[in-house]
Design a protein around this nucleic acid. Structure first.
Lengths: 228, 228
DNA sequence: CGCTAATTTGATCAGACTCAAGTGAAGTGG
DNA sequence: CCACTTCACTTGAGTCTGATCAAATTAGCG
């Protein structure tokens, strides 16, 4: 119904295939570092910081990455969670305007940006991959602005759950990879409000909470109604 | 410091030049409609609606355009104000996910999207213009998420004023082209809170309000401090 | 099994919203 | 040219949602 639709639909679509296949193939018989190097991170490790030289563009292979911005006094806004297949770290300028961290253990491929730039000129397909990645970020960001600016706490949570379900869940059970703090900083709320909203949805029979991070969407229609 | 810097810097940079010069030159000796057609709108006219077939990409020649999203119950989020030189209406899918309206009288050029798509394949420069437009939208959107999710009313207004000043003002005087309602829907506030914030900044001697829409930035340092 | 961190819950508070008037400026028509 | 209407903005009073502060549970984990 919103953001997630495009994201999910496109992540398995053609354009991305190139970016996926190219480095993996090459890394077998060539130096991986020149095309794409695979990197692993443990929980809460920094992949890059706000202000770092933006030398790489990344793609998530497994796990989850959060990109966030900080205010001088520590207030944080997580602009997106990046799941397997998602691209992050695309920048127009020469530095990252975000910090990127692993949410749990995760594996990413890093593509040297200078190399991509050269390819983008000659290889139209690869340029389109970057463009698609950007488009998807833009769509997500724009939908998220509506959420942040105009939705109530309960509506924010409902939208978030539907979005995550769309992106990860096979059935009606959803395993959240991130903490309440991360969710709060993504939705512009506090952890207490996030927790209370979950509890309220559970009491209304709209979701089940077998454990803190496992959500059962028992009444998706009600969630969609809250989605406004 | 944020959004506005890149926007301003890039709006006069090279990549955009092509998009500006190409249609204007051609429209003199060729049918303008095939490349870019100039359209005028009076105050509060609709340029396109959310869900319309996204047949054109637009560029503002003069005046201001707002793009917004609506919730089912009428709550509105203005994602951006587009000033002269700004591109809007770029879509990945085949329909607009926004509504676009003129804020005051304004003139725009409409580029047929099918035509651009063809050019993007052959003309790398033009493709980069679109890419740049998208990048700038993305940067703005990402900064705006931080504002919507984590800033107080006063901080939102301060950021907004600095941003508008950066984009339009020559000196320390700023003429706002939009109403309090538009500002409120852009910043995720109500008109009353917007008004009260302006009054408060005035009382603190940080801004002057010779008339409702004319702002004098008498203490830019204080504003920047509020910018967090 | 005890320790630490994450989450939930409770009580209170505050910033922003709602509702309601009041003020002022711009435009209209006599 | 001036009274009248209208619309945009400001101001005030009271309310409410979500934040803050604080404590209790619960869940992981070594």
């Amino acid at each position: 119904m919103h953001t997630a639709l495009l994201t999910k639909a496109s992540s398995s679509a053609l354009p991305l295939f190139t970016l996926e296949a190219l480095p993996l193939r090459k890394s077998v018989d060539a130096a991986p570092s020149t095309v794409g190097s695979v990197q692993s991170f443990a929980k809460d490790e920094e992949i890059f910081a706000e202000g770092d030289k933006a030398a790489y563009v990344y793609k998530v292979l497994s796990g989850v990455v959060r990109t966030s911005k900080l205010l001088s006094d520590g207030r944080r806004q997580i602009d997106a969670f990046h799941l397997a297949g998602d691209i992050f770290g695309i920048e127009a300028g020469d530095e990252y305007r975000f910090c990127a961290e692993s949410v749990g253990n995760c594996v990413v491929v890093a593509y040297r940006r200078s190399h991509l730039a050269a390819l983008t000129g000659s290889d139209a397909q690869l340029g389109q991959d970057m463009t698609m990645g950007m488009m998807r970020s833009l769509v997500r960001a724009q939908n998220h602005m509506l959420l942040l600016g105009r939705k109530s706490a309960l509506e924010k949570i409902a939208t978030f759950l539907l979005d995550m379900a769309e992106r990860t869940a096979d059935d009606s059970t959803l395993d959240l990879p991130m903490s309440r703090t991360d969710i709060a900083d993504h939705l512009g709320l506090t952890i207490e409000t996030v927790s209370r909203s979950f509890t309220q949805l559970e009491r209304q029979g709209i979701i089940g909470l077998p454990s803190a991070r496992r959500i059962v969407l028992s009444n998706r229609a009600a969630l969609e109604r809250l989605n406004a």
